[in-house]
Amino acid sequence: MKLVADSKKCTGCRLCMSVCSLVHFDEANPKKAALYIDAKFPEPGTFHTRICDQCGTCASVCPEEAITKRDEDGVYIINAEKCTGCGECVEACPLNVMFVHEDSSVPIKCDLCKECIPVCSTKVLSLKEIKAEVKSKK
């Protein structure tokens, strides 16, 4: 499974980022979230919800094999103990969703906890099977 976003509905409230940092770190800090909202203002006045699509590029470039695919849902998870903080995955991520914060050398990556989905009142975020999407890309 993976997250998908219908960015046209996004209002830029950042509740998704807010709950993400709260759930993963017991802290309030949207800069420690595994997703991001790009706001394009004053023109053209749009929001874009940047989320991980579990493509696995991060795992493929990791020299330590610290990022592995979870069997049951295909989500890529960082093993913080193996991670050396080299930044290869951050560089390689095609969607720019491997987030770096000064508190830790381990990047912050979506683990599909799904907590961001219900807090969004305009229902920007939803779940999708990974397989179906890979096919349609081809």
């Binding site: 209002t11 409230c13 023109e43 006045g45 749009t46 807090v119 009142s121």
Partner: peptide, 27 residues
């Protein structure tokens, strides 16, 4: 143009708008 919220707001009362005057867009 878009509904725009303040931080953490689930009811997004901000209405981001556009109008045109003298051949220019105003946001």
């Amino acid at each position: 143009v878009t509904n725009k919220a303040c931080f953490g707001c689930p009811m997004a009362c901000g209405k981001y708008a556009k109008t045109r005057k003298n051949n220019r867009d105003y946001y």
